[in-house]
């Protein structure tokens, strides 16, 4: 386990295994990780605590990732300006564009290995090399 980075990440995905996988990777890299199963749960969390980054899936029940992001960006600052990383199963360019229109700061296509995830999250949180 790397020493704590002091950065707090919210992982939003309805698949237990996927959340678990991201959590393992991020915790191992020294991040503090919270989980949410869908957009609704995620909104409650971001309004209640300060995060450094959101890692969000696209397809989820109740509120999908794009709707969640659109809602997030309409909140008051500083919640509205939370950086968000979308991880999707769709590689299509229009999906990346849709993610951007919803307010995503970056977009990765599954499968995303642990190292790739940690690398992106680290840079997006401003951690030194």
């Amino acid at each position: 386990m790397t020493e704590p980075s002091g950065k707090r990440i919210l992982v939003i995905d309805d698949a237990n295994l996927v959340r678990r996988f991201y959590r393992d990777a991020l915790e191992h890299a020294g991040f503090q990780v919270d989980e949410a199963l869908n957009g609704v749960e995620a909104l409650e969390k971001v309004l209640g605590a300060a995060y450094d980054l959101i890692v969000v899936d696209v397809n989820m029940p109740q509120m999908d990732g794009f709707t969640f992001l659109e809602t997030l960006r309409r909140q008051a600052p500083p919640v509205s300006s939370l950086p968000a990383l979308v991880i999707s199963t769709e590689a299509a360019a229009h999906d990346a564009a849709a993610a951007r229109a919803a307010g995503a700061n970056f977009y990765l296509v599954k499968p995303v290995g642990q190292e790739l995830l940690v690398e992106h999250v680290s840079i997006m949180c401003g951690l030194p090399t």
């Binding site: 295994l17 996927v18 996988f21 393992d24």
Partner: peptide, 9 residues
């Protein structure tokens, strides 16, 4: 070496 969800499942 790959902690892939499919493999784990």
């Amino acid at each position: 070496a790959n902690h892939q969800v499919e493999v784990v499942t």
